[in-house]
Design a protein around this nucleic acid. Structure first.
Lengths: 205, 205
DNA sequence: TAGATTGTTAATCGATTAACAATC
DNA sequence: TAGATTGTTAATCGATTAACAATC
């Protein structure tokens, strides 16, 4: 049987659904409706039902969706049942914020180490971790379980460091450097560039 | 004559084109081709030409695009010819990183003030700014030129603070709080949630 | 059963691509 | 002029929506 291919744009919405369901659960709720979720997210109820139906039948006609059950299913689908260990590359302001960031708790991630190439930063303590030497990046990450990295080095070095991450076995990179990374097609990359997001909005102002 | 409506997904790509052109310019280049841009960005040349053609004829057949000229046109289109003053709300780790962030330079933005509600933080200095009291947010921003804010408060307070920003005349919000904001339809919002971006990738791992 | 909401179909809507005429 | 690349068209591809049958 051919595996159903899920559009990437649907995959992109699942974490939003999950986050919202966890929020409802934290409020003590047990059941929600596609309509309620839609209103909480500015998305049509039809789209939410269609997205979820690509993965299975998670709701009950006439009743809605059991929140805890749907959370469990989405965690399975997104592979966040366990916690992924994550490396931060670059111990600047963004890197520092990420090692201390509380928002990874219960979302499937835990920062595990941080690297920098600046000798003045190597060995200093940041958010509970000693900053490691970038020269040891490949070796250290390769001998760890880490498959995910967050890249916060300057744009000039980002491509080079990204290639070292791939060499070390990293499969997913959250890239804060303002540059497109050319990497093998099996490596996933997501981009965060505040200026790009802001310029997207100033178009309309 | 009816104004042509530009798809939002096209608008989203323009800042990426602009960033890449500025990179080429910094390397001393004068001319580029849709094909080259496409290769630098993992986007088809046809799409780049089509996107740009929605706004005018910026290239020259047989030659390509003049980089400086195209940069100027994109800055005009995206309204980043002048520098926008931006407020940061929340003086936690992310807010701190944003006030010191070097990546706004030459991209059309300058952080101008930062707010927090914690009395221990109010009045302390952060990245060259004294942290202001959130209680004064509406008044202070309303009497400024600020139309853009970056929101880095906890999810529980984000909706409430966002409404105060709207009251103060803010028209665009870059939201780092992990929650969807329900705001009037003329207010633009962009979302940055590292956990969401990471979960988007773990689906494929 | 009656009422309600999901799951799913088919139609609509929108975005991307390939191909080539226009033109520098 | 010959060669090259843009701008643009039309076809293809993909995503969203409305509507309703299925079913709890």
């Amino acid at each position: 049987m051919a595996e159903k291919v899920i559009p990437d744009i649907v995959v992109a919405r699942l974490p939003i659904y999950l986050r919202t369901l966890q929020q409802l659960k934290a409020e003590g709720r047990n059941i929600t409706l596609s309509q309620e979720l839609g209103e909480m997210l500015g998305i049509s109820a039809a789209q939410i039902r269609k997205d979820l139906s690509l993965f299975g039948e998670f709701g009950k006609q006439g009743t809605g969706y059991n929140i805890s059950y749907l959370i469990d299913r989405l965690c399975e689908i997104l592979n966040v049942g366990k916690e992924w260990e994550v490396a931060v590359i670059g111990a600047g302001d963004i890197g520092s914020a990420l090692v201390s960031y509380q928002g990874f708790a219960n979302r499937g991630f835990r920062v595990n180490m941080i690297f920098d190439k600046n000798p003045e930063k190597i060995g200093t303590k940041l958010g509970g971790f000693f900053v490691k030497n970038s020269d040891d990046l490949v070796e250290t990450i390769r001998s760890s379980e880490i498959k995910i990295a967050m890249l916060t080095v300057p744009a000039e070095n980002a491509q080079e460091v990204a290639e070292k991450l791939v060499e070390a076995g990293v499969k997913a990179i959250l890239n804060y450097a303002p540059i497109y990374l050319k990497l093998p097609s099996d490596i996933r990359v997501q981009y965060i560039d505040p200026s790009v997001h802001l310029q997207h909005m100033t178009y309309y102002l």
